[in-house]
Write a protein that binds this DNA or RNA. Structure first.
Length: 478
RNA sequence: CGGGGCGUAGCGCAGUCUGGUUAGCGCACCUGCUUUGGGAGCAGGGGGUCGGAAGUUCGAAUCUUCUCGCCCCGACCA
């Protein structure tokens, strides 16, 4: 049992912070609300980036970069947008030793400046669609920051597209939502519910907002990605117009979609345990660590290390990348070395000692289950590949079972309240109310509508009693 | 923004109430020896001026005032 990590049941927040610290994922920066993403944490983000970026490219998008400073007046142009973001904006008021005539906002998101540029670039239906993504940092002044989940500055990607027709823009919105679902579920092994947000949870300025909603291991919900259909709201605010096939001037239909370093927080809170971090193999910076072990440091270094390196090279070759690491910290005792890798969440540990050399085997230990097996040399590579696949699917299955076990149905508001208060988790209920009803539910229960499930639109609303309400998942959220 | 807690070595803390010799302890770190398949033992050693400022005093980590920052809970929040 880890002795530097608070058990989950004792204090979930502290457990989360302890896991991050023990795995050396991030540290607090000198500025409140800001964090330093340390190399291990950043490698995880790089792997998420790589998977997403390749999906974006496959779906026809290109990367570009827009500036971090945005004229403050841009935020005034879209009424809901300015109202939504005003409290979180950081402003630059001085530069070059002088007060600026017009302050600049440090971007909290880039709809405005991209809209501004699109209006210059788009003239004709032949210029459409425009499918651009950017990887960048954004800043939103947060009152209560939490590492990875809510920091004043964070990293993300934001896709911004402009289309000729509403249908095309709506298709794009859902296509990207599906990309997120796929990467979250297949690569991060995080099961998500993807669907629409209710009116009260909508992005400021969007017509429709969609989400990939995940359940953390304390049963609270975490929005892990969003995709917005912006209609013509930003096109009208920024005059993104084009001449259509009939020769008339019309406004574009735009979308935006994003996934941030918050997903690293989701990863941590979905899979990790009281011993520390657990990373799904497909995202893990190091998939397997090989430890030469001997009482005698010189035997470890001169006799076992070469074998370990050989095995490492063979595995990297087979796995198609530099995915294994040889632990050369011979001076440290095995227990210390085991725990170090345990806390960092490395999926597989391969122990190579004198006993193994004599027997022609390697001892392999899984991070997710702790299971140990001795494998014949000739079977090591196939076993490692199989185990990595097993761990990946086990983590997903484990998280999905947990979510399903903590998802319940409520047929009345009273029942919803009762479940949220006594059991927590996700509660499915038919809801067709207004944003005011959402506020009331939040104030009375602490829960908010997280996602409207696709399909079933024929229920009776638990608040209004009206028919035609949609099946909605409620939960307390991060 | 409200409530609570806290700033003393890299980390965790004691000392503060009842000012007084070179400010302690555990872990970590360095050196050596013995150890080594789930968090070793012994010996030696390095490192802090007590968040910051002003004040009271012969004397301040300790008392007073101001200030900066961090964490937790809540409110708020894409």
């Amino acid at each position: 049992m880890a002795r530097n990590i608070t058990p989950r049941k004792e204090n979930y927040s502290q457990w989360y912070l302890d896991v991050i610290k023990a795995a050396e994922l991030a540290d607090y920066a000198p500025v409140r609300g800001c964090m330093v993403i340390r190399p291990t944490g950043y490698s995880i983000w790089e792997n998420i980036q790589a998977k997403l970026d390749s999906e974006f490219k496959k779906t026809g998008h290109v990367n570009a970069y827009f500036p971090v400073l945005i004229p403050a007046s841009f935020f005034q142009k879209e009424a809901e947008h300015v109202e939504g973001f005003a409290p979180e904006l950081a402003m630059v008021t001085h530069a070059g030793g002088e007060e600026l005539e017009e302050p600049f906002a440090v971007r909290p998101t880039s709809e405005t400046i991209i809209g501004h540029m699109y209006s210059k670039w788009i003239q004709s239906w032949r210029d459409l669609p425009v499918l651009i993504n950017q990887w960048c940092n954004v800043m939103r002044w947060e009152k209560r920051p939490r590492l990875f989940l809510r920091t004043s500055e964070f990293l993300w990607q934001e896709g911004h597209t402009a289309h000729e027709t509403e249908k095309e823009a709506r298709e794009e919105t859902l296509k990207m939502l599906e990309v997120y679902r796929k990467v979250l579920e297949e690569e991060l092994a995080i099961p998500v519910l993807s669907g629409e947000k209710t009116a009260g949870e909508r992005f400021p300025g969007a017509v429709d907002t969609y989400t990939c909603e995940a359940m953390m291991s304390d049963t609270r919900a975490l929005q892990s990605a969003t995709s917005h259909f912006l209609g013509q709201n930003f096109a009208k605010a920024f005059e993104i117009q084009f001449q259509n096939r009939e020769g008339e001037l019309s406004y574009c239909w735009t979308t935006s979609w994003g996934l941030s370093t918050r997903s690293v927080g989701a990863l941590i809170m979905t899979h990790s345990d009281d011993d520390g971090l657990i990373i799904p193999p497909r995202i893990a910076p190091v998939k397997a660590v090989i430890l030469p072990i001997s009482k005698d440091e010189s035997i470890a270094e001169n006799e076992i290390l070469p074998k370990a390196k050989e095995l490492s090279a063979k595995l990297d070759d087979e796995l198609g990348g530099m995915f294994t690491k040889v632990d050369t910290d011979f001076h440290a005792r095995p227990g210390d070395r085991f725990f170090a890798h345990l806390q960092k969440g490395v999926p597989l540990r391969l122990e190579l000692g004198e006993k193994d050399l004599a027997a022609g085997t390697v001892r392999i230990v899984r991070r997710d289950t702790g299971e140990k097996i001795d494998v014949k040399n000739e079977a090591v590579i196939t076993t490692v590949k199989k185990l990595l696949d097993d761990i990946q699917s086990n983590l997903y299955a484990r998280a999905k079972n947990f979510r399903d076990e903590n998802t319940r149905d409520a047929s009345s508001y009273e029942e919803l309240k009762e479940i949220i208060e006594n059991k927590g988790g996700f509660v499915r209920a038919y809801f067709g109310g207004t944003p005011e009803d959402e506020v009331r539910i939040r104030e009375e229960t602490g829960a908010t509508p997280r996602v409207v499930l696709p399909g079933g639109n024929n229920g009776k609303c638990i608040i209004t009693g009206n028919d035609g309400a949609r099946l909605t998942v409620f939960a307390k959220a991060y």
